[in-house]
Amino acid sequence: MKIVALVGSLRENSFNMQLVKTIQKRYRTLFDVEIADIGILPHYNEDDEHAPSEEVKWYKQQIVEADAVIISTPEFNWSIPGVLQNALDWLSRVERPLVGKPVLPMGVSQGALGTVRAQLHLRQVLMSMGINANILPPAGNEIFIGAAGQKFQDGELTDEATLQFLDQVMDNFVAFVKEETK
């Protein structure tokens, strides 16, 4: 199974990137994770959507070839970062490779609530007419990691309770993807 991950933070030591890399390493026997570099994408411009740059073409092809997508977002001003919105905007036009694609939203922050507000907004964007992704049902599957500074060490998620929960959600996501892509 091939999964493409979108990380909504460009920060060098991003906890969201650390989460995705933890997933990439911890579940390597269940699936392969390819991390899309959304920081190289130009700003979405409707004038360019029918003749996009090579970076946009490559990015869209990554999504087309994936069985599923993981999106890990920080929370900026109670929402998702602009770089992530831009990446999703490119996917919402012309080919629209996220339509029906299984997606797992998640996020990490230093705050006590994790990324609750950002993920609510992310889910709205993912359900929009242009994207219409197939989101893993939230009941028991919402990954809101708060107090990140206490749960990550040396670039990896180490908090045992969080890892156990993540194991359950990943099992649920793999089953969801298999069911939705058969």
Rank of each mutant, 00 (worst) to 15 (best):
N77M: 05
L136R: 05
V116Q: 13
M129P: 08
L136Q: 03
L126I: 10
L122D: 08
G82M: 06
E75C: 00
I143M: 07
R117I: 01
S72G: 12
L120W: 14
A87L: 04
A118H: 00
S72Q: 09
V108M: 04
N141A: 07
Q85G: 14
A118L: 01
G100W: 02
G100Q: 02
L84H: 00
A87K: 06
T115V: 07
L91N: 13
V83P: 07
L122E: 07
P105E: 09
S128N: 01
I135N: 09
F76I: 11
W78A: 15
I70H: 04
K101N: 05
I145G: 14
M127Y: 12
A112Y: 15
P102H: 02
G111Q: 13
F144D: 14
N77Q: 11
M106K: 03
N134Y: 11
L126E: 10
L84S: 01
N86P: 11
R93P: 09
N86C: 10
N132F: 09
P81T: 02
I145S: 12
P97I: 06
N77P: 04
I70C: 00
V108C: 07
A87M: 04
P74I: 05
K101D: 04
V108S: 00
D89Y: 01
V99K: 15
A87P: 08
L113K: 03
P97C: 10
P138N: 14
M127G: 05
R117M: 13
A118I: 00
A112P: 15
G114A: 05
M127P: 00
K101I: 05
V108E: 08
G100L: 05
T115D: 01
S79R: 11
P102V: 00
I145T: 12
A112Q: 13
I135E: 09
V94C: 02
G114D: 09
A133S: 08
W90Y: 08
S109P: 02
G107Q: 08
I145D: 10
G100K: 10
